[in-house]
Design a protein around this nucleic acid. Structure first.
Length: 198
DNA sequence: TCATTAAAGTTAT
DNA sequence: ATAACTTTAATGA
């Protein structure tokens, strides 16, 4: 889901530019804005005590983020960090509320999008908590593929590095690499120029 | 089965 | 050039 940028601008949205690695918001801070990605990629993540990263989600082209925390008075449970050089658009919470009041159909859109995210999270959790490496990776890749129109086998070029795949599944990178290779041998996916096709 | 460590090769900035 | 990412191999829980 994405909200038309013209609507967001009319609600007082501002554009911001970030370089790779820069924080857009931090874990434990108070949500104040509705965010949407205009260009580039953003990740939502956590770091555990020994610095290992766990990626919760990766957002790109027109996807919103941080929205699920916007309607409750709680601090962010994740960081939002730019993966690449990116442009985001943000609207202050109060203006966003007003926009939803003026455009009630947007409420439905936002609800749908939140439901979708929640649904995918459940599916992912089910696999990640009780399946082997291959299953975990397959699920993450499959969920991403579902967002594209072409569902033919091997038509989806996974837009993630091995490292990101590892951080999304909670596996170490070496296991991720070995498992991806095994999955290629098992004809679950293909590898072309290091890119994963599913 | 998977994590960790180390070492070396490859790609991106 | 330097950092970030990828790969392989050995070892151990």
């Amino acid at each position: 889901m994405s909200i038309k940028t013209s609507l967001l601008y009319s609600a007082g949205a501002v554009e911001e530019h970030y370089n790779a690695g820069e924080y857009i918001f931090r874990e434990s801070s108070m949500p104040q804005f509705y965010y949407q990605v205009l260009k580039g990629e953003v990740k939502l993540n956590n770091y555990n005590h020994d610095g290992k990263e766990f990626i919760q989600n990766i957002l790109r082209n027109d996807e919103s983020f941080g929205t699920s925390m916007l309607f409750i008075h709680k601090v962010y449970p994740v960081n939002a960090i730019a993966i690449s050089k990116c442009t985001i658009i943000k609207v202050h919470k109060e203006s966003f509320y007003k926009l939803l009041e003026q455009q009630p159909y947007l409420y439905l859109e936002v609800s749908k999008s939140l439901s979708e995210r929640l649904y995918n999270k459940f599916i992912l959790m089910r696999k990640i908590s009780c399946h082997n490496a291959s299953e975990r990776l397959k699920e993450v890749i499959q969920l991403m593929k579902q967002e594209q129109d072409n569902q033919l086998p091997f038509s989806f070029v996974v837009p993630l590095t091995r490292q990101q795949l590892a951080s999304l599944t909670g596996l170490c990178i070496e296991t991720t690499i070995r498992t991806i290779k095994k999955m290629e041998r098992d004809k679950i996916l293909r590898i072309k120029d290091r890119k994963i096709l599913y």
